[in-house]
Amino acid sequence: MTSILLITLKGIFRDRVFQGIMVMALLFLFIPTIGSLSMRQVTELSITLSLSLISFILLLLAVFLGGTSLWKDIEKRYTFSVLGLPLSRTSYILGRFMGNALFLCLTALFLGVITLLVILWAKGLYPPSRPVRWDNMMIAVLFDTLKYLLLVSVAFFFSSVSTSFFLPIFGTISVYLVGNASQEVYDYLHSGSQAVKVLPGMVVKAASLLYYLIPNLAAFDYKLQAVYGLDIAGRGMALTVLYWVIYTTIMLALTAVIYERREMK
């Protein structure tokens, strides 16, 4: 498993993905300038932009690395030679996942450090009205990373049931969009508003069921708390981490089970 992990990590670096990230990271240089377009919250806007840029880069990595990792092996006929070795398919899946996960974490760390520097710079340009909460910013980046690791596990799950890259990529993007909105929809359906009451009961039930099935990605979003220095509830964070552990494990277990039974020709 460790060897698969290392091969995966090396493969990603060999594909020059990290160079691509460095080029995208150049965008961070423009953030203080864009931030200064704000009238009253230059630092706040710079934090918003930085955290969103990190989140966007990690999303691209999760979707494209996670969604193509298993598919590419089959396409290159690499899977067959690997699985000919004394190695279980589960270890292969886990190795691949860990490799992708480690790369995502390294990227998040790299971009997180750049963000801290950018915010220090922006803060010097225009002092914010409220002190910058560095701890909240680190929490925001950490939870974004967890969120995209979960998304990688979803991409792996889709890869296990599909033979092309369409389902993993577009399926993962859909889960990302729906997962970010599911909490909002659930809250709305249970708000007791008049518009909800005319909906058929089935629709409300189906939507609630989906809410429990689809990963709740909005829970991992601590950007507002980081930008405006709001307090973060420890209980909420702990529950979210637990949720993440269980959900990711379930996704990987399902992927492994399906992959074990899959016929490889």
Partner: peptide
């Protein structure tokens, strides 16, 4: 807007404000 901007609501809001400014 909330749906399509997913976890980038802050940036979308800032973009709308900049647009009107």
């Amino acid at each position: 807007l909330k749906f399509v901007s997913a976890d980038h609501k802050g940036v979308t809001a800032a973009a709308l404000i900049l647009k009107s400014m």
